[in-house]
Design a protein around this nucleic acid. Structure first.
Lengths: 224, 224
DNA sequence: ATGTAATCTTACAGATTTGTAATGCAAAAG
DNA sequence: CTTTTGCATTACAAATCTGTAAGATTACAT
């Protein structure tokens, strides 16, 4: 489960929130000030940060700036004041949400889930069976072993893993891979590419599990 | 500038919001109900949707579901009630934010900017000068013309465009491109790759603008 | 100016990719 | 059962990719 860093000045609020979020299944680390907060951030790389605006040794805004300088980790501001310019300032610094006290616990939990969902969706590795494709590095691995794919094989796999469980017609594949460059390719060229790709990614290319044939319609990647 | 679809029952609120957001530079389209709202959504593909929970012909939740079924376009719920279970329900349906009346205009604008910022960051095409790299299709184009890159050339370019304006050392490049597979390559192999990539992507490979050399330190991609 | 180190450029083979053609095979249609 | 259709498989040249070597050029220090 996700790990949350709570940076909060007031010990009473800190404990209340901390207990509630633990009951929701999160791992919580708490700090009462800027210095300790940033230290825990560097040490544990939490998945989300709850940040009080008013801290003993500074304010939450500078903490948020410091975090944003090195990371996109979601930051949710907590504040006693519902002051509009504070809210605006918080978002300008790159915060992901801004919640005014009094906190309603279920809403807080929903907003935490919301930022985590988006954050996880953003850093998307594409999985399928024991295969992992990392679009940010154009890297394909299976059981930790790199698989070398040619440019077109990579595109073909990317197309399938981007649409898991979805039937993709032969025409659509041909379009996505070739028609941007205006070329036209022979009728069974795609068959050959499927074979080559399967030989590289499937455990048993004769009985493909990752990309299955749907006779007469196209191909379909496994759900996950 | 971004285009916003406002789906709101109450004509007075609709007009007030609409005028304010226009003054902020957005293009606004308004609908008063579910049916009209979804029609405008399909017709104009707005960048963001402001969605009142209570509508004449249904409620905002079903509209949100319908939108989420086909798109990740950001949805911000607007509501008169500050009811906590409504808020939670909204987020469960995949909403991006949930704002209770009375709306403070500057905060609303800040929250809109926030969801737009994240949404744009998520569907990230990587730009640099007149060059565009689409990681979701592994496609590189320049002035609309496709550029054919080999697997390694693509990775090399991806590395640079993912870190615009940032100096990248030769060692780091060698690590990112080769050491995952455990291979070691000759000392000037990277020089050759840089040359090949530049020949393909730069207008004038002799005077590279997209990736510049920083002698003794490495290479650096232009900011944008 | 001269020397040195860093980077660029060219050239070259071996490996791989790319597209086509020919053949094989199995599921659906007749 | 036979034929047809759709996909799989194999084999093959042309093109391209990949890494290295050798020499040219450039920027910097002395």
């Amino acid at each position: 489960m996700a790990e949350i860093l709570l940076i909060e000045d007031d010990p009473a609020i800190s404990e209340t929130l901390s207990n509630y979020l633990k009951s929701e299944g999160y791992t919580i680390r708490t700090a009462s000030g800027q210095r300790g907060g940033l230290e825990l951030f560097r040490k544990f790389s939490p998945d989300c940060i709850l940040l009080d605006v008013s801290l003993a040794d500074g304010n939450g805004f500078s903490v948020c700036s410091a975090i944003r300088a090195v990371s996109e980790t979601p930051v949710i501001f907590l504040t006693a004041s519902a002051d509009e310019s504070c809210t605006v300032a918080g978002f300008e610094l790159g915060a992901d949400d801004y919640i005014s006290k009094p906190f309603r616990p279920r809403e807080l939990a929903a907003r935490i889930r919301n930022v985590l969902r988006r954050y996880n969706a953003a850093s998307k590795l594409l999985h399928c069976q024991n295969l992992i494709l990392d679009p940010s590095k154009a890297l394909v691995t299976k059981n930790g072993q790199e698989i070398f794919l040619s440019a077109l094989e990579y595109r073909l796999l990317l197309l399938f893993l981007s649409n898991p469980g979805q039937l993709i017609s032969r025409d659509r594949i041909a379009d996505e891979l070739w028609t941007i460059s205006g070329e036209f390719i022979g009728d069974n060229t795609l068959n050959v590419y499927m074979k080559r790709l399967r030989d590289k990614i499937e455990d048993d290319p004769q009985n493909p599990c990752i990309i299955r044939t749907v006779r007469g319609l196209g191909y379909k990647a496994a759900e996950s």
